[in-house]
Design a binder for these strands. Sequence first.
DNA 1: CGGTTAATTGAACGCATTCAACACGAGTGG
DNA 2: CCACTCGTGTTGAATGCGTTCAATTAACCG
Lengths: 218, 218
Amino acid sequence: MTLQARPSETAPSALIAAMDTLATTRLFGRDEEVYAQGAPVEHLYRLVRGVVRTTRLTADGRRQVGDFYYAGDLLGLEVGPDHQFSAEALTDCEVQVVRRGAVRAFAGDAAMDRAILEGIRRELERAQAHVMLLGRRSAREKVAAFLKSMAEGCAGARGGPQPVEMPMGRQDMADYLGLTIETVSRMLTQLQDEAVVEFPAVRRFQVKKWDRLEALAA
Amino acid sequence: MTLQARPSETAPSALIAAMDTLATTRLFGRDEEVYAQGAPVEHLYRLVRGVVRTTRLTADGRRQVGDFYYAGDLLGLEVGPDHQFSAEALTDCEVQVVRRGAVRAFAGDAAMDRAILEGIRRELERAQAHVMLLGRRSAREKVAAFLKSMAEGCAGARGGPQPVEMPMGRQDMADYLGLTIETVSRMLTQLQDEAVVEFPAVRRFQVKKWDRLEALAA
DNA sequence: CGGTTAATTGAACGCATTCAACACGAGTGG
DNA sequence: CCACTCGTGTTGAATGCGTTCAATTAACCG
C-alpha cells in the first residue's frame, strides 16, 4: 500500500549524491506550496516522501494539473527563467531543496547538465503522454487510462489483491484529465458497475478486470 | 509571406556547425515520411526548408498531431529508444540528417549533451503548451489560439497587412487541436464573421482584431 | 453527535460530433 | 474554353456526450 506511483525512477546518481550532501530538507504540509507559478527558477527539488502536484492557473481561473510526482522524482525542472507551473504538496511531504548553482559547482557542469537532461527527458515523456491522453479520448477512456497508470505505478498491484491508494481527490483528477468532477465521478461509478474496478473507499481501488481496463485505456 | 512560424529559433551553434559538416542533406516531397513511429532513434534531423508535422497513431486509428516544425527546428529529439511519433513532410522539405554517434564524436559528448538538452527543452515547452491548449479550452478558444500562434510565428505579421500562410490543412489542425475538421471549419467561419480574422484564401489569413484574438486565445 | 468538506446522483442544457449534402478549386482532357 | 473529376473545405440537421446547476449522500473531524 505504497503511494509510490512510478516504481523506481531514480534520478541520476551523481545528482543524488550531490543533493544528499548539499540539499536542505524541508517539510511541507498538505496543500502547502513548494514553489509558485511565475516565480524564478532557482532551486532543484527532490521529493523524498509524499506526493506533489503541479498546477497552472489561466488568467480566467481555469486550472490544469500538470502532473503528479512521487518519492524519488525531481521537481522544478522547468525550462524558462520562471516556473510555468506551481507545485503543491498533496500529502505531507519531505523535499530536498538545493540551489542550482550549488549543485553545479559541486558536481560539475557536465554532470549537472546530464542530470538535468535526464530529468527534462522524463518531463517530456510525461507531457507527451498527457497530450495523447487529452487529445482524442472520451471521458471514459481518460478515467480508465488514469486508473491504469495509477495501478501500474503501485508496485505489485498488477495481480495482487492489494488495493491502490489514490493520494489525489476528484478535483485534481478532473483538472488533470480536462473534465469536471461530476464526469469523473460518473465514469468511476460506471467502471465500478461494470466490475472493471472496485472502490472499497473513495481513494482506494482495486483492478478487477485488467484486460478490460487496458482495452479502455488503449 | 514566409512559412517560418517561429522566427529565429536557431539550434545551439556547436551543433549547427557539426551538422553542417557531417550531415547529408535529404529532400522530402509532400507527405513523405522523414521517420516512422516505432522506428529506433538513431539520427538527428535539422529542418532547413519546408514544414514538417509529427503525428502519432493510436491502436484504434485515431490520430494526434504532435506539433509542426519549421526551418531551423531540430527533429527526432525523442526520449526513448524508439520514436513515439512519426514525422512527415507537410510541404517539400530539405532536411539535414546525421547519425547521433557521428555528431557526438565530432562535437564531443558535453557539447552534444548541451545541444540535445536545449532541443529537448524546447520540445518540453511545446508539449506543455499543447497540454494547456487541449486541457480546458473550448473549440473556439483552441482555434483562436492556433491562429494566434501561427500569426506570431510569421515574422512581422503583427501589425503589417501581409497575410499569414498556413501550410497545414484542416485535418491537421483538427488532429492537433483534438477537434473534428467540421468544428475547426465552423470556428474559422465564426471568427471570420466576427471580423477577428479574414481568409482571402483557404490557407491564408490576416488578423483583423488582434486584441479580440488574444482575448480568445487567453 | 453536529458541522463541514468531498463525492455522488439527477435532470436539463449546450457544445461538439456525426452523418449527409453541397460548394469550391485545381488539374485534366475533350 | 468548358465539362468532368477528385480532393478539400464548408454548411446543415440531428444526435449524444459532457457540462451545468441543484440536491443528496458519504466521509471526516471536532
